[in-house]
């Protein structure tokens, strides 16, 4: 008798928990792969391809599948640290094979020299270069991610990567970045 009761009880419990689990798996179903989105969120979106993948999202997918997190030079240490936090792995120094962390730069086309070959336009991953065939091209500075990809294709080498100089609005209270002058003293004789 007691055996039957035990069996029924256990059976009921199994049924209840089974229902709960089944409900939970429907109710809390994970759509897509949020991990890739989260990683993509952290990456700097320069789309430079220095990591060896054709853009930030492909690299995000690769990280989610177990690739190293230290292949993003534009993001630098800060990005690696965030990725390490997210992935629960140890932060490691930037892999030098993929480049070095550098200050922020944007592309600048020396317009006199541009021959209008459109090669840089095709290379730009974010469509930040304007121009048409045989017409001078120019870079939309605000859209440029500084990925460097337009420099190599240029046949006349008229693209420079120019460091972004701080302005009064982008200044972060770093007095070291401020040029210092003095008070010119005129000697009164």
């Amino acid at each position: 008798m007691s055996l039957t009761v035990a069996l029924i009880a256990i059976g009921l419990l199994a049924l209840i928990f089974g229902l709960v689990l089944g409900y939970a798996s429907i109710k809390f179903k994970v759509e897509g792969d949020p991990l890739v989105d989260q990683i993509d969120e952290i990456l700097p979106q320069t789309q430079c391809g220095q990591c060896g993948y054709p853009g930030c999202r492909p690299y995000a997918e690769a990280i989610a599948n177990g690739d190293e997190i230290n292949k993003c030079p534009p993001g630098g240490e800060a990005t690696i640290k965030q990725l390490a936090d997210l992935m629960g792995v140890e932060a490691k120094p930037l892999d030098a094979a993929h480049g070095e962390e550098d200050e922020k730069k944007v592309a600048f086309i020396r317009e006199d020299e541009c021959i209008g070959c459109t090669k840089c336009i095709q290379a730009c991953p974010v469509d930040a270069i304007l121009g048409a065939a045989k017409h001078m091209h120019t870079v939309i500075t605000d859209e440029c991610t500084g990925c460097d990809l337009c420099v190599d294709p240029c046949p006349v080498d008229c693209i420079d990567m120019v460091p972004v100089s701080p302005t009064t609005t982008s200044w972060t209270w770093d007095f070291d970045k401020t040029p210092k002058g003095d008070i010119p003293i005129k000697m009164v004789s």
Binding site: W173, F175, T178, K180, G181, D182, I183
Partner: peptide, 8 residues
């Protein structure tokens, strides 16, 4: 001598 900078 250079001017000294500091924060308020």
């Amino acid at each position: 001598m250079k001017l000294t900078l500091s924060s308020s």
